[in-house]
Design a protein around this nucleic acid. Sequence first.
DNA 1: TCCGTTCCATACAGTTATGTACGGAACGGA
DNA 2: TCCGTTCCGTACATAACTGTATGGAACGGA
Lengths: 189, 189
Amino acid sequence: MPAPARTPRSRWVEEGLRALAAGGPDAVRVDSLAKAIGVTRGGFYWHFEDRGALLEEILDAWERTSIDEAIERVEAGGGDAREKLRRLFDLAASSRDLLKVDLAVRDWARRDPAVAKRLRRVDNRRMDYMRSLFALICDDEDEVEVRCLFTFSIFVGSHFMRTDNGPRSRREMLELALDRLTTPNFGAL
Amino acid sequence: MPAPARTPRSRWVEEGLRALAAGGPDAVRVDSLAKAIGVTRGGFYWHFEDRGALLEEILDAWERTSIDEAIERVEAGGGDAREKLRRLFDLAASSRDLLKVDLAVRDWARRDPAVAKRLRRVDNRRMDYMRSLFALICDDEDEVEVRCLFTFSIFVGSHFMRTDNGPRSRREMLELALDRLTTPNFGAL
DNA sequence: TCCGTTCCATACAGTTATGTACGGAACGGA
DNA sequence: TCCGTTCCGTACATAACTGTATGGAACGGA
């Protein structure tokens, strides 16, 4: 019967995610993954049709863990909408590796329509979830939308910005912004 | 005396910017630039030491045009702070090519410290300029900072997001957000 | 011990890129 | 017409990577 998997399929995907996070899709090279794992490319082509097939599976893995798991974990904690938003933000900021994959995929999506389609699916689900939370905090529909946009923008944008020391530190700024965003009807014009 | 430049140095930089915008730094290949221009690589190495030298000059060009020219153009239009912010936003959203270079540089900066340093310089100058404008609109210092963060985040983040049809269109959303941000003291908590 | 499954190493062919060397071609003055 | 500047084309050496083919090695049952 089956012999144990020494370097199973998942290992290549795992190492692929690491490479993607570190250097984008162009850094996902069969050669370097093999070197990182400590084997030659021999086994790779037993598992995968070609390099493209690996990239697909990498995206599959990212898509699964980045929506389902995330929302699940936030919901599991319970609490009101404000606490959940807090937790969502902390979660997004915490798991360093997953975040880097996320950013790499975002750039990748700019030039690959198939990747863009996947990202759209993921972002829409995240946005829907956020909308449902903000709707519990404020009544006005436009207000909800604007807060979603701000929140999502800060989450994504802040990692692509390189600004240092204005009057306040980055961390302080995010805190301040978050407080604003989770305060009921602060700006119902 | 000097013969006319048929494919001058600047031509390579220009085509390099185009490639960078389209596919990131990895897409800036001496070979493909030559093909795009319609010559062989022969002349390239007369102008540049190597591929790295070209990348440096590409970044130089981006740095020059993306701060100095931008701020200059916004200031040239005159008007009050609100109008200038409006114009700043329109400008940023309009020139498609420059924007794409900007986004490519942002991703690039995540893995190259030298690029990150340049981006920091640029972003700080932009942030300083925005801060000076928002300070004319609202008094509270924290308020100014939060608005800067929101504005910059939306500018950068919205191009890395892939969300469609919430209740309102993307364009409407940005309008709505901008109105909020340029309204004096809307949320002076 | 033998067998099937799972994987690894090695060798090879092909592609695409870099950088170097060098012989010119084109062009505008003098 | 000759010359210097500015480039272009070609050939060559090298490197990095992809994918294929093939012969096994390691391992756990039966």
